[in-house]
């Protein structure tokens, strides 16, 4: 339950921060979630990755749906004839790698501060 809440916070806060400020600021949501939910180092990495994966993938899917895949088809072709689904997954993975790395640091820093 705690993990699910952490992921929801990362997705929600990440969306607000990314939309209001720069896209990189969305990763701060992971920094916020790790101490709030007292996540362990491994949980920080995993939940950070899952949260940012869902945020990037979900938002990209929403845009793509409204666009009826017009642009994603062309970008997929541009990037080596990738299907739209692959492009969406790659987008999600790019976010998840960042989320995992930030979670890793956040987990270490949280330990450094609280222990």
């Amino acid at each position: 339950m705690r993990g699910l809440l952490a992921i929801l916070v990362i997705v929600g806060v990440g969306f607000v921060l990314s939309s209001m400020f720069s896209w990189l600021s969305g990763f701060l949501a992971v920094f916020l979630a790790v101490p709030v939910f007292a996540l362990s180092k491994s949980q920080s990495i995993i939940y950070g990755a899952i949260g940012m994966f869902l945020l990037w993938l979900g938002y990209a899917m929403l845009i793509d749906f409204q666009n009826e895949h017009l642009l994603s088809n062309q970008i997929g072709t541009l990037l080596g004839h990738l299907p739209v689904s692959a492009l969406l997954v790659i987008t999600g993975l790019m976010g998840s790698i960042g989320g995992a790395l930030v979670g890793w640091i956040a987990g270490l820093l949280t330990g450094f501060i609280y222990r």
């Binding site: 990314s18 939309s19 720069s22 896209w23 990189l24 969305g26 990037w56 938002y59 990209a60 845009i63 793509d64 409204q66 666009n67 009826e68 017009l70 642009l71 994603s72 970008i75 790659i90 987008t91 790019m94 976010g95 960042g98």
Partner: peptide, 18 residues
């Protein structure tokens, strides 16, 4: 890649709603 792929300011933002 980050600038281009992220859905908040990358190419996805150019996918106009129909």
């Amino acid at each position: 890649l980050g600038n281009f792929l992220n859905p908040f300011s990358g190419f996805w933002q150019n996918a106009e709603a129909t």
